[in-house]
Nucleic acid binder design. Structure first.
Lengths: 218, 218
DNA sequence: CTTGATTTCAAACAAACGTTTGCTATAATC
DNA sequence: GATTATAGCAAACGTTTGTTTGAAATCAAG
């Protein structure tokens, strides 16, 4: 069998992959068991070994799938900038795209898996990280460098960290934040509000916008 | 036996606690085994059950110990502010204390354990989180509220997130960052530099300092 | 020395883990 | 129809997991 045309149920490989994504995201690599993954996919225990080889290879494939899902399904691709696009505009775009992806209009389980990997990267996933995350980091660094061509590398790095730190916070610490403040209060911070805030906060810090002052600074 | 005066080797309970802190920090709750913990502490397998009851109780105790270690051993307690201390100064102090703690002058394993818990909080640790983290979050919120008394709650929350997001980034994503940029480049960002940057970035965003402009904004 | 409580220890426990094994079907090829 | 590769299955594999056990060791008090 070479190819199959859109069956009612997904192909076994894909079913396994999606089940693995959920289980790994919820429990982590060690705590997620191949038995539960197969049960969720309604398949036999041996299916993982047959389709992917072993648990770790399945994990890596699920991690790749999660990255591609988060990148594509967000509905927010990085724009292709004209040669004369102002760096400030690039920064605005960058923040918008990244925050949109973090706020998970797509399956949130994919992002849970990614954030889990960011917090405790498994050695086996190094190449996946390099392939999917590094380009986004370099893109930001280049924008900052374009904004401040004469800044020293350390300052460029720290400015980038300030931007990405603000963005990642909403994903990485959502659970803890919801535990401390009310869950409703956190959910009131919808996508547009967060984009607007981080953009404003960042541009103001860099002197490219008016400071954040609800009614005039003290 | 009621009390014992400073033996050459630590008391068994303390030995177990420190070993558990390291193992849990490196591998997480599930992957860390009681056998490895006991081996590290040079104790028998049954010691955990005898001294703490079970693995989960040991984990909670290790988590508490990690919090207290990070709070006290950093050498940076929160200052007690005079009644007329300017909110801007409080914010400066807050950032300094928190960044100092994140940059782990004390045992870094304690912080690894805490960051792991922030990323994926275990339900059993809720009260520990509430007791140790919530006060720090409220303290920041109060400072922001003092700076902008008429700001709406959402904006106060987001400003706080921008501050704490910048701070936490250096701990939570250190491994990934070192993987993408060189490890030396990241280590070149020493404590004072990071404190200065985050403080400057934040105060500039809030209109309480000059913008960050290496040589004059474009 | 004897007593009695506190700690340590090797050994074993059942349960869950990832993986492997043969044995069936099923589908395509000759 | 016979043959070959693919796919799925129940069952069992050997480890490792957290936990428990009962006896040995330790030690202060009588």
């Amino acid at each position: 069998m070479l190819e199959q045309e859109s069956p009612i149920v997904l192909e076994p490989r894909q079913r396994l992959l999606e089940a693995a994504e959920v289980e790994f995201a919820e429990k982590g690599f060690d705590a997620a068991s191949v038995r539960d993954i197969c049960k969720r996919a309604s398949m036999n225990i041996a299916a993982i070994n047959y389709h992917f080889g072993d648990k770790e290879k399945l994990y890596l494939e699920a991690l790749k799938a999660a990255h591609e899902c988060a990148d594509e399904a967000s509905g927010e691709p990085f724009p292709v900038w004209a040669a004369d696009t102002a760096p400030v505009q690039k920064l605005r775009d960058y923040i918008r795209v990244m925050v949109s992806r973090m706020h998970a209009p797509a399956r949130p389980t994919s992002l849970r898996l990614l954030m889990r990997e960011m917090a405790a990267p498994s050695p086996a996933a190094e190449e996946v990280i390099r392939h999917y995350i590094q380009p986004k980091a370099f893109r930001l660094r280049d924008i900052v460098l374009e904004l401040f061509p004469t800044a020293d590398p350390r300052q460029v790095l720290m400015i980038g960290f300030s931007v990405i730190g603000q963005i990642l916070f909403y994903r990485q610490n959502r659970a803890v934040v919801e535990l401390m403040f009310s869950k409703e209060a956190v959910e009131a911070l919808n996508l547009e509000r967060v984009i607007e805030h981080i953009t404003h906060f960042t541009l103001a810090a860099l002197g490219c916008a008016e400071p954040i002052c609800p009614e005039g600074a003290p």
